[in-house]
Amino acid sequence: MGQETVAETIKAITRKHLEENNSLLLGQCISAVGWVNGTVPDCQGIIELPMTDIAGAGIAVGAAMMGIRPIFVVRFQDFMTLNGSPFINYAAKSKELHGRSTPVFIRALASEGIGPVHSGVLHSMFMHFPGFLVCSPMTPKEYKNVWQVFMEKDDPVFVSEHRLSFQSTEELLDVMHEHADITLYAISASRFQLAEVANELGKEGITCNIVHIVWLKPFDILDRYLEPLTRSKRGLIIDASFEICGAARSIAYELEQASGYPVKALGLQDNTKCLCPPFQNKFPDAKKICESVRKILST
């Protein structure tokens, strides 16, 4: 366990990039309230965008076309339905169409429980379009690795962050058992639930492998994913975004095809994430995941 939180890691990476590479960070309301949960430094290269969601993203794309590798921050992923179009239509296509890349680091922050327009998790949408790298780092080390990949490659990277990770210093590690009943793969904030899930189900005599997924696209079928599945013979992908047409189902399909074993998906229900319980449509917590596992093992 390190000392640096995810938020501090993001802030340090950003400061280094802006000061040493003379790059830009663009976003709305960056400095006014807490510097985006303490993830943005007060240094050169911060561009406060006016409340112009599409133009703001287009300006970031224009800066990216000049090769300065800008960081674009959208404080709530829900706003990506507005901010997304310049990235989708231009940045993600330019390399394939013209052989000219448009590298931009899109920081899209997710939240939980703050209503229908601020609790969205939209990484699945960006997996759909060719040209993006899509990831969801939840630990300091993962974030550093994601940044390194961005700097080494020349693609736009959609980084699905989650506020629930920002104060964490923990590295989340896979847990493997020789004779597990099921392998659980988790994405985004659901990953923080897995230790409790394993503990609860363990009391019932159910043993779970735990696998953490950071990179959603490209989704390489790693030995780390397949090997535990071939032993447990059952899998469940858990994600904090919508299940229909979502990351969990897509990855479940990939792993089922690759392994020949049944892999289910668990994500958000096909309902708006409303403000108050019981209508919040929260990401799969330990209770929901446990219920899902029991159901899978009973069939």
């Binding site: 830009l24 133009a55 300006i59 224009g62 800066a63 239509n89 231009y90 169409l97």
Partner: peptide
């Protein structure tokens, strides 16, 4: 010379972003 990708006027914010960066 950069062209656009079919969203009418998308090149305008891009041009502004390019001028901002350079």
């Amino acid at each position: 010379m950069f062209g656009h990708h079919g969203f009418i006027g998308e090149n305008v914010p891009q041009a502004v972003g390019a001028a901002l960066a350079t």
